[in-house]
């Protein structure tokens, strides 16, 4: 190999890989090692305790509750966000007048900007805004509901009732992300050759049929990517939870693994156990991505 090529490989591959090793792989390995110890996090000594941290997690109802909450989030948040984002993107790109060239609704760029807007706000701010909106006594939501005569919502604690805390939290996350994924899908749909739509229309396809037979198959890969991103976000969700219900919500109904991990590490001084939680979370995330890929492939998404 000529020297220039060796230098090229070292710079383009070696350097990033060195960084990747030091800042990604190494901490992973470290976390795994700590998960096998009883390290408190504040000493330079610890003992290896084998897999007993993992055994403890299996018996820890609070952690298991957090796992269930995360799985629920990973199921609902991506699904609802993607359906809404796709519907909006379709309206903006191909949902317009059925005469002339295929196009979106009139003034679609306005809708695009408006719905993208929440994404420009940092997650923590979104969380704080909505926690004020849902405040039982002075929040806008209850003010509006009691204003139209629904008196049962006087001082109703949306984030303090087991039945509503999780749905409200999901709503806030979805609200923050629909716009971004709409823009992502618009880009994907714009990449579909217009001839396909024209041909479909000539064949007599209506808007619904065009959406399901042309748009969806053509943006399939984008949907898969979006699903994985949103799933990872839902398995984390720390920022939203910290702003909406920092202590885990009523009867821990919105407690997530990341929150439990944080409390275990810094409040209870059990870094070993917390590292085990981190490893479980990482495995669940990988599993989630694998499932999404598998579902897409099995349903014929890829030329296998």
């Amino acid at each position: 190999m000529p020297l220039s090529r060796v230098v090229f490989v070292l710079v383009t591959l070696g350097l990033p890989f060195a960084f990747y090793t030091v800042f990604v792989l190494w901490p992973f390995v470290q976390a795994f090692v700590y998960s096998l110890t009883n390290w408190s996090g504040f000493t330079d000594t610890f003992e290896f305790v084998g897999l007993s941290n993992y055994a403890a997690l299996l018996k820890d109802d609070i952690f298991l509750k957090a796992v269930r909450n995360n799985l629920l989030l990973a199921l609902v948040v991506p699904l609802v966000t993607i359906i809404l984002a796709l519907a909006l993107a379709t309206m903006v790109t191909v949902g317009g007048s059925s005469t002339g060239a295929v196009r979106g609704l009139s003034r679609s760029s306005f809708y695009r900007i408006v719905s993208f807007f929440p994404y420009t706000i940092p997650a923590i701010v979104i969380g704080l805004i909505w926690s004020q909106m849902f405040d039982p006594s002075s929040g806008l939501v209850n003010a509006a509901l009691t204003g139209i005569g629904l008196d049962q919502f006087e001082s109703f604690a949306w984030l303090g009732e087991v039945s509503t805390a999780m749905p409200v939290t999901m709503f806030v996350i979805i609200w923050g992300f629909v716009g971004f994924y709409m823009v992502l899908f618009i880009a994907a749909i714009k990449g579909i050759p217009a001839e396909l739509y024209d041909a479909a229309r000539v064949d007599g396809a209506g808007r619904f049929r065009m959406t399901f037979m042309v748009t969806l198959p053509m943006v399939r890969e984008t949907i898969q990517t979006a699903y994985i991103y949103l799933g990872i976000l839902a398995l984390d969700a720390f920022v939203y939870m910290a702003a909406l219900n920092a202590s885990g919500g009523p009867q821990n109904s919105t407690l997530t693994m990341t929150q439990d991990l944080f409390n275990t590490a810094f409040k209870q001084g059990q870094f070993g156990l917390a590292s085990a939680m981190g490893v479980v979370l990482a495995l669940l995330t990988l599993l989630f991505a694998a499932i999404v890929f598998a579902v897409n492939r099995l349903s014929g998404g890829k030329e296998a």
Binding site: P136, S138, A157, L159
Partner: peptide, 15 residues
């Protein structure tokens, strides 16, 4: 006072 479970504590204290 109902609704405390959804009220941030300093906001409740201000009430």
């Amino acid at each position: 006072k109902p609704g405390g479970g959804g009220t941030q504590f300093t906001a409740a204290q201000a009430q």
